[in-house]
Design a protein around this nucleic acid. Structure first.
Length: 208
DNA sequence: TATTCGATCCAT
DNA sequence: TGGATCGAATAC
């Protein structure tokens, strides 16, 4: 798809069935919002309706996941644990409800602002080393839900990497924190990147 | 209407 | 390892 400004977003036209490929492709892209830029270093793919029990969309449309069923390039933002926000980029055909969760990134612009927004981060590599931290650094919350990252109308803008991330530099493994589908290796990250979030296996709150 | 619990983060 | 904290989703 051609969007002007000399930028093409091939993944916008990729089918929902290839959302795992889209997820890998988004590694290295730069997301800018509110004077801070992050280079995406870790993502997770979620396929839509029915197919993926870990997906917020797998039981059908609800008030929360409605955006997932819309056009690709929109942000699906949701609140987690009552205090943090996470963002997905919607992928695939309208109605398919596939999405890529943005899990971590490296701050490549607006470093001073990013540090102010995340006083708890000791090192720069920790500034956006997690989905909630990424949103804090970019100062995005539920108001960014449903906005586009590709048409310049929303608070966040996605741009291609200067140098693409090669397949050989991409590692994969099980998704973090999900209670279902542990066997699906749909978490992707840039191998060796310091800003990749620490992996911790999900532990149910009530023993089990 | 009531209850449960999460695609997290941080200090201990 | 556990506590914070609240709203969407699901169970009555």
């Amino acid at each position: 798809m051609w969007l002007g400004c000399g930028v093409t977003y091939a993944w916008l036209d990729a089918p929902a069935t290839a959302v795992d490929q889209t997820a890998r492709e988004l590694l290295g892209w730069e997301l800018s919002a509110n004077d801070v830029t992050v280079r995406i270093s870790e993502v997770e793919a979620y396929s839509g309706l029915g197919a993926d029990p870990a997906s917020h969309a797998h039981r059908g449309v609800t008030g929360r996941n409605e955006v997932m069923f819309g056009p690709a390039g929109a942000l699906y933002v949701y609140q987690i644990y009552g205090m943090y926000f996470c963002a997905n980029i919607v992928c695939g055909e309208v109605g398919a409800a596939a999405a890529v969760l943005l899990r971590a990134g490296e701050v490549t612009g607006g470093l001073a602002t990013a540090r102010q927004r995340r006083p708890a981060a000791r090192r720069d590599r920790d500034l956006a080393a997690g989905p909630g931290k990424l949103m804090q650094v970019l100062a995005l919350d539920r108001r960014a839900n449903a906005s586009s990252v590709v048409d310049g109308t929303g608070p966040a803008t996605l741009r291609p990497p200067g140098r693409p991330v090669l397949d050989g530099d991409v590692a994969s493994g099980p998704r973090v924190g999900v209670t279902a589908a542990h066997d699906v290796p749909w978490r992707f990250w840039i191998a060796g990147d310091a800003s990749v979030s620490a992996y911790r296996r999900h532990v149910p709150r009530r023993a089990g």
